[in-house]
Amino acid sequence: MSPAQNAGPLDAVSIWLRKTKAIIQREIGSRYTGDAIGYLWAYIVPLAWIAVIYVLFIALDRRVPIDTDLGSFICSGVVPYLCARYAVNAILRARTAYRHILSFSTVSHNLVAGAVFLLELGNSILVFLTLLLLNYALFGFFEMHDPLLALWGFSLAVGVGGAFGYLMMSLSTIWPALSRATPIFLRPFFYISGVFYTANELTPRVVELLSWNPLFHGIEVLRSGLFEGYTSPLATNAMPLTFIAICVAIGFMVQRRRFSGEGADEDASWAI
């Protein structure tokens, strides 16, 4: 029996925190290869996306649909979209990256997915803030109408990605090909999540069609927090929260069903 199984609630929390920290340390050490250039890479990719869309906006002479600067508007769409995708990919990748460590009964898929998501969320918030500050440093614009609402909207967007990643991770324990097919599901979301437009620019019929997209809601909630006076028919919490709850519940049930036989059988296969 593992120490956590004998521990009281406080000890169990402490052990959970220690294991979560260990996974985060392993992720940081491995994903960014432990050096400064590796860390910079986390910023360079979204910066490149922003630059491409920035150039496209200017080349196509597209006006910003909100009373704000181009940099802030692009950041409000591209960064949450990218971070949601990062969350999906990171959680999906964890299933194979931790396949040996997952043989410990002390380490579950849920623990790994949770730790990877926490790291991804923290990292995403840091990247977003850094890019907003970079926009201020370069062009003198900084938008932050309601910091808490902005943080909530951003977290909703990344949370949608994390929950979808968890669902796909769970389902791919049954159908491994799903993890490879996930990028195909995700690709259309670049075009249907309000990355480079707002819900207010769309016709009511299109808004109605896209209202099922939880990522769009998260991005619009973020914009409500960033831009003063911005309101959107899609800036609602219900859709993304429901989506997150459904994905997590299904993923959790799949995990339980998939590993229930082992759980009863292997109470502590944690030694090395």
């Binding site: 593992s2 120490p3 956590a4 052990i15 220690r18 294991k19 920290k21 260990a22 996974i23 340390q25 392993r26 460590i101 410990f104 002390t106 380490v107 944690w270 030694a271 090395i272």
Partner: peptide, 9 residues
């Protein structure tokens, strides 16, 4: 150290 933490050792 990381593996020891994950193994609760």
């Amino acid at each position: 150290e990381i593996i020891a933490d994950l193994a609760e050792a």
